[in-house]
Write a protein that binds this DNA or RNA. Structure first.
Length: 221
DNA sequence: AGCCAGGACTGAG
DNA sequence: CTCAGTCATGGC
């Protein structure tokens, strides 16, 4: 919680997860679907590139499950190209869209269930792993699940915590934070922001905002 | 010019 | 189960 406050005061509130409110109002589409697709597209990929892919879909007015589900693979691949891994991502996005349209044409029904039931279902879909599933639950579904990523692991290492496994880390954060969707969202975003700006790789960064409350060594190996 | 990003899957040992 | 290899574009 100290770390959370420190990061929050240093970076300020983050605007996660970005999505196009105007577009969804205009087309009467569900903004949550954009978040879910974004979560898949951003796997090991810079968000700037994801934005371009999403923009391509919006320009074609096709950012909704039923449109994607029946789009040609080639065409979809073209739209997704900027976000990298475009062939497999096209497959995954399409497969996911089909799944949604066939089972949950209304996303309310998808999200109106116990968290871990949804999570289990998401994890059963090809291309959705732990982090992506939890991002969808937290940012699209507003469910209290803490999202762990590579930056989170580095951060913990730096504080001398040798927790390696995803689930253990997630539980650790959830145990030590108030069970608040807002804080979970914000904290994860802040950790990413920290990682992008100050803890790129090994070298210890002189300007890291956490230096005052954390060990100065950046452990590696 | 490299390095790497808001990972997940697969196959091998 | 752990681990390397694979997928690929664009930003910095």
């Amino acid at each position: 919680m100290d770390i959370y406050r420190k990061l929050l005061s240093f970076f300020g509130e983050q605007k996660w997860w970005p999505y196009d409110k105007e577009y969804h109002k205009k087309h009467r589409t569900d903004y949550r679907f954009e978040i879910m697709i974004g979560a898949i597209l951003t796997q090991n990929t810079n968000w700037k590139n994801v934005e371009k892919a999403l923009e391509n879909l919006k320009n074609a007015c096709t950012l909704e499950p039923k449109r994607i589900a029946k789009m040609g693979s080639k065409e979809l691949q073209n739209f997704l190209k900027p976000s990298g891994f475009f062939k497999q991502k096209a497959d995954r996005v399409k497969n996911f869209s089909k799944y949604i349209i066939e089972n949950y044409p209304n996303l309310d029904k998808f999200f109106q269930r116990p968290i871990f039931e949804i999570r289990k279902e998401l994890l059963g879909i090809k291309g959705i792993g732990l982090e992506t599933a939890d991002s969808i639950l937290l940012y699209a579904g507003k469910k209290p699940i803490f999202v762990v990523d590579a930056y989170t692991k580095r951060l913990c290492k730096r504080f001398g915590l040798n927790i390696e496994k995803y689930e253990d880390l997630r539980k650790y954060f959830e145990k030590n934070l108030p069970r608040s969707v807002k804080i979970y969202k914000e904290f994860h975003a802040l950790i990413v922001e920290l990682g992008k700006n100050y803890c790129k790789k090994r070298p210890f960064c002189e300007k890291c905002p956490l230096n005052s409350i954390c060990p100065k060594l950046y452990p590696e190996s």
